[in-house]
């Protein structure tokens, strides 16, 4: 072997790529663990407002989501803000049955711990939000969370 090497001089050996799969696997596992499959197909415009005094929503299995905003497809659905539950548009009246349905799926011990996360577009008027809140009160879903983005500068407006 050394015979051949002599003739070719001392070239740089190729970088070993043997550890490449390991690195890629590591990244893969990271993403597999952190990934959350997109649960709903959002059909609304969703620019959430910013806030500073916010808490993290822990334990995603104990959260129900209500989306409110202007439809993305304005030609088909118009520009009036709509409510979306799961994948479909809903009316205000349907919220009660949605919450009750979700409640029935959970065990009794968890029922008191459920938070309703309101994901509302910042351009929405409060009228529809207030109606939704009134419906939530009627079914005793009192723990709510106004979903916001995190604002870094506390004192800017």
């Amino acid at each position: 072997m050394s015979k051949f090497k002599k003739g070719k001089g001392k070239g740089l050996p190729a970088v070993s790529t043997a550890s490449l799969p390991d690195i890629v696997f590591m990244l893969l596992f990271f993403f597999m663990v952190t990934t959350v499959m997109r649960e709903v197909d959002l059909q609304l415009k969703m620019e959430q407002p910013e806030a500073t005094e916010i808490d993290k929503l822990e334990n995603k299995s104990l959260v129900d989501y209500i989306y409110i905003g202007e439809p993305i497809n304005t030609q088909l659905y118009g520009t009036v803000p709509k409510i979306q539950l799961e994948d479909d548009f809903a009316t205000v009246e349907e919220i009660q049955s949605y919450i009750l349905e979700k409640r029935a799926e959970r065990s009794e011990a968890e029922q008191g711990l459920v938070t309703v996360s309101l994901k509302v577009d910042e351009e929405t008027k409060m009228g529809i939000v207030t109606e939704v809140k009134q419906e939530l009160r009627k079914v005793q879903a009192l723990k709510i969370n106004y979903s916001t983005r995190e604002k870094l500068d506390k004192n800017s407006f």
Partner: peptide, 30 residues
């Protein structure tokens, strides 16, 4: 490595780093 890359790309695309933050409030009872 190719297979792992393929899977990696799949998870990269489907992932949503969706940490929910928000203002927690309690509604008054009806």
């Amino acid at each position: 490595a190719d297979i792992a890359f393929l899977l990696l790309v799949f998870f990269l695309v489907t992932t949503t780093m969706d940490t929910s933050w928000g203002l927690a409030r309690k509604l008054p009872p009806p």
